[in-house]
Simulated assay, not measured.
Amino acid sequence: MIIAAKRYLKILITTTIVSTAFFHTAQAADALKMELQATKIIKNADGKARYVVVSNAQKGETVQYRATYTNTINQPISNVAVTLPIPANMTFTGEAQPKSAQATIDGKNYADIPLIRKVDGKAVRVPLTEYKALRWNIKWLPANKLADVSLNTIIN
């Protein structure tokens, strides 16, 4: 799990750098700083969720990845696309915040969740096991403010 987490962080850092290419208001390459936190979701006896920073996790446990994007410049940024890949050893649960997330099964084409495809002429939902990444469009991020996105996964 620790090796997978390090590989995932490397992918996310690359994703953050790529995301800066979508800026319209600000063109500074270092305008957006991303911090990633992985937490294990543990349900208490009363059903309330408790979030514990992950040092290791086992098969079947739920892990939430939360990315905080901070605008580090003194001007607003608009229409920033940020992406979180879903690690190969995990399955997206269908829970993401904000709910405006789009998903991909091929890493190129994104659509609103739930993803739908035609099978024998009928529209059917794409299994969550096929989701590869989620993307959000941050419409407006004021100077020196932050935006959070998150997705929940289950370890396979």
Rank of each mutant, 00 (worst) to 15 (best):
I2S: 15
I3E: 12
I3Q: 15
A5G: 02
K6L: 15
K6S: 13
R7A: 15
Y8I: 05
L9Y: 10
L9W: 10
K10C: 06
L12G: 05
T14E: 15
T16C: 03
T16N: 09
I17H: 08
I17C: 04
V18P: 04
T20P: 04
A21R: 13
F22D: 00
F22W: 05
F23P: 00
T25L: 08
T25I: 06
Q27R: 13
A28M: 03
A28I: 01
A29Q: 12
D30L: 08
A31N: 01
K33S: 11
M34W: 11
L36K: 05
A38D: 04
I42C: 00
N44D: 14
K48W: 02
K48L: 03
A49F: 05
R50F: 10
Y51T: 07
V53F: 07
V54D: 14
S55I: 02
S55M: 01
N56F: 08
N56M: 07
N56D: 15
A57Y: 13
Q58N: 10
Q58E: 13
G60A: 05
E61K: 12
E61H: 12
T62R: 11
V63E: 06
Q64E: 11
Q64M: 08
Q64N: 02
Y65Q: 12
R66Y: 04
R66M: 13
A67N: 06
A67Y: 01
Y69W: 05
N71L: 04
T72V: 04
N74P: 06
I77E: 08
V82S: 03
T83Q: 15
P85M: 09
P87G: 12
P87F: 13
P87H: 10
A88S: 10
T91I: 14
F92V: 01
F92N: 01
T93S: 04
G94D: 05
A96T: 01
A96F: 00
Q97N: 09
Q97H: 12
P98Q: 08
S100R: 03
A101I: 03
A101Y: 05
A101R: 01
Q102G: 05
A103Y: 11
I105Y: 04
I105W: 04
D106Y: 01
G107E: 03
Y110A: 06
P114S: 01
I116G: 01
K118Q: 15
G121E: 10
K122Y: 03
A123H: 13
A123M: 10
V126H: 00
P127W: 02
P127T: 00
P127N: 06
E130K: 07
E130Q: 12
E130T: 04
Y131R: 02
Y131V: 11
K132Q: 14
A133T: 07
A133C: 09
A133N: 09
R135Y: 06
W136N: 00
I138V: 12
K139F: 09
K139R: 14
W140L: 05
W140C: 00
L141T: 06
N144R: 14
K145S: 06
K145G: 02
A147T: 11
D148Q: 13
L151I: 08
L151W: 03
T153S: 14
T153G: 08
I154A: 01
N156S: 05
